[in-house]
Design a protein around this nucleic acid. Sequence first.
DNA 1: CGGGGCCTTGAACGTCGTCAAGCGATGTGG
DNA 2: CCACATCGCTTGACGACGTTCAAGGCCCCG
Lengths: 235, 235
Amino acid sequence: MIIDLFLRTHHKPVLDAAERDALEAAFVRTQDFTAKQIVVREQVPLTQCTLLLDGFVERYKDLPDGRRQILAIHVPGDFVDLHSYPLKKLEHSVAALTAIRVAFVPHEAVRALTKTSATLTELLWRSTLIDAAINREWIVSVGARGAAVRLAHLFCEMNVRLQRIGLSDGKRFVFPVTQIDLADATGLTAVHANRMLRQLREDGLVEFRGGEVFIPDADALRRFAGFDPGYLFID
Amino acid sequence: MIIDLFLRTHHKPVLDAAERDALEAAFVRTQDFTAKQIVVREQVPLTQCTLLLDGFVERYKDLPDGRRQILAIHVPGDFVDLHSYPLKKLEHSVAALTAIRVAFVPHEAVRALTKTSATLTELLWRSTLIDAAINREWIVSVGARGAAVRLAHLFCEMNVRLQRIGLSDGKRFVFPVTQIDLADATGLTAVHANRMLRQLREDGLVEFRGGEVFIPDADALRRFAGFDPGYLFID
DNA sequence: CGGGGCCTTGAACGTCGTCAAGCGATGTGG
DNA sequence: CCACATCGCTTGACGACGTTCAAGGCCCCG
């Protein structure tokens, strides 16, 4: 089933069998992308939404001076652009961080779903708003946390999100991004991100190497990062 | 009409008369708050949404060390917590920056609206996603812009948003926040915000004083801030 | 074998934060 | 009515955190 992972992370409100079937049936096709390929380009009129089935995806904005700000990182089971249904286009771009597989659902199909079930509507709407809550937590990160804490917080977030879909055991997970990506996500320079990663490693809090994250003591990292998963709305 | 200002800033998709009436009728009562009063407290279960009719409102998170990050500033016509309908509670608090007046719409009424009209659903959903787009632009601000540019960008945003509801003439508007608020919104200290405001004033870009903003040359400020209003989805 | 990502480290610099002090306006209680 | 506290604004001096510039190493791929 295409929507299995999505429903695993978005199990509230609860759908009945008919609603689940309707959602599953709304998808028209799947597609593969290679790493670094652009999935959705900003400002381009859109007529479908994209569900990530496998791999990692980033949302980002390019800045006038050539720098880049990563706005969100998506994992399997996430819609990467469900917000394009009401918005019709995006103000940022979406790109594959790794090789990925996605499934598409046309905007008309989403509209049809909202007509058939208020619960389905609420579920889809909710998923876009959890993304927004994550956006807001990132504002706090870049606005008010020090460099090392920022990175630690990001690792905590990915750890929790990946654990829910079976891609982390709580201590170790594959996180195939470069230090440059981490820097772009946290508003740091690659040089400084590198130094802070070394510090986190030396302090025994996180090891990031070769696209893998190892967390010796998840609780210690959580305390260091001031991480409270409430904003992920996992109930 | 309660929803006049809301519809002025959210005029797409277009509602027919019946939909407008249904939306208007969904509101149950209005309430006044005084400046600094908390309108919605984080983590408290909610059963209604709040539309701002008059005054200014902030969304914010308190940090463990006593600091504060402002996540968004709302102006009349904005829903301050429409996202509470799918989320059922908020991960941040909402407080009045000035004396305000709001109107409430129960969650059940929102649900009923989504059942009657897919267009209405899309409109309400869209409005929460424009908030999210603003959240993302703030990530860029705190993550990648210098202190003076950050402040300039915020003034540009407020200028555009207030102009749409007739509260700015494009050069001058009432913006009743303190320098401390500006600092909390931009991730700066009050001291540094003060210095940057002086610099902006001396450079003839913006004057912020006594809760008023004066922009001698809106185009010059826009260039300085690198401001592109696309993320506000005004079409 | 050459080139290009990515990672790593050092040294110097600069933006921004911290600490401290003083000012004016407002408000409140003795 | 004045003394005093509070709050927001302002400025200076100093220090820290993060950036910039530079160089070198590693590894993969063409």
